[in-house]
Design a binder for these strands. Structure first.
Length: 257
DNA sequence: CCGGGCCGTCTTATGAGATT
DNA sequence: AATCTCATAAGACGGCCCGG
């Protein structure tokens, strides 16, 4: 039983999805989304395992909430440092310390932009320069050292964090956060009409996973179902190509001017 | 002045380094 | 020596930012 368990990834995705407010989300809502994301699920079958699903939702909710908690917790001593919500598994996330460090790396990256042309991704073959973990972060940090040493004067503290309180409803969608209008076929697949590109990709994968549309032989290949076929116009598509075609389904929201 | 690099987002294969 | 782990790459996108 408990097919409910098999939906855990999906549920987790929903709970961590775009625009999900943990403080207001309800199991009911999650169930509804789950229904939309997993076509294999019908109202009846869902109802049949509702209890199990609810249990899973509750569990995932707790985990997600805990993470969110830590995220906003961030104070106490320093605003950074450990957030490691129990990470017993040795899987170690590649992104060791996200949050502050990541943001930090961001700024650093920006400034080391035109610095030395070393950037981490040199090419293939033997790119890894570091040796240990988080080469990416390490690289950045590494640069940090150099940067600091090289140009001690200018502190990269530039940070321009002002939120620009202009649109409460439209939270400064800059860069990748910009929302697009989805084409009808795509909107039909994802059950939403507007999303930022990264979120579209994410939700798309949720859908793909939910329907096991990956070619088992080559998991980088997506086997289109009827809905996806309407989007991509092919029976199967490489996931990179998918990203490419995605552009055809994203239209910038009309400028209000 | 113009431009180029990078941010997040997804996935998996892969190769190469590291550890045992 | 053999196995294991893990970062990297590849695709595209809008905005930001400073450097040359």
């Amino acid at each position: 039983m408990s097919d409910a368990e098999s939906f855990e990834p999906l549920i987790r995705n929903i709970l961590t999805g775009p625009g999900v407010d943990l403080s207001t989300v309800s199991a009911k809502r999650v169930r509804k989304q789950l229904l939309a994301l997993a076509p294999s699920l019908t109202e009846e079958s869902l109802k049949a395992i509702k209890d199990d699903v609810d249990a899973v939702i509750t569990r995932v909710y707790s985990e997600v909430k805990e993470q969110a908690d830590e995220s906003e917790h961030v104070d106490e001593d320093q605003e950074e440092e450990e957030e490691e919500a129990e990470q017993p598994p040795k899987k170690k996330a590649k992104k060791d310390r996200p949050s502050s460090d990541e943001v930090y790396a961001q700024k650093l990256a920006q400034e080391l932009n035109g610095h030395s042309t070393r950037k981490s991704k040199s090419s293939s073959s033997t790119p890894r320069k570091g040796t240990s973990k988080s080469a990416k972060s390490a690289a950045t940090i590494d640069s940090d050292d150099e940067a600091e040493g090289s140009k001690p004067t200018k502190k990269r503290k530039r940070v321009k964090k002002e939120k620009e309180p202009g649109d409460p409803s439209a939270p400064a969608k800059g860069g990748f956060a910009k929302e697009y209008n989805l084409s009808e076929p795509l909107a039909d697949v994802l059950s939403v009409s507007k999303l930022s590109r990264p979120q579209v990709v994410k939700q798309l994968w949720v859908y793909i996973k939910g329907n096991t549309l990956q070619n088992p032989e080559n998991k980088r290949e997506i086997l289109c179902d009827d809905k996806l076929r309407l989007v991509f116009n092919v029976d199967k598509i490489d996931m990179f190509k998918m990203n490419k075609v995605l552009g055809d389904h994203l239209t910038a929201p009309e400028e209000a001017s």
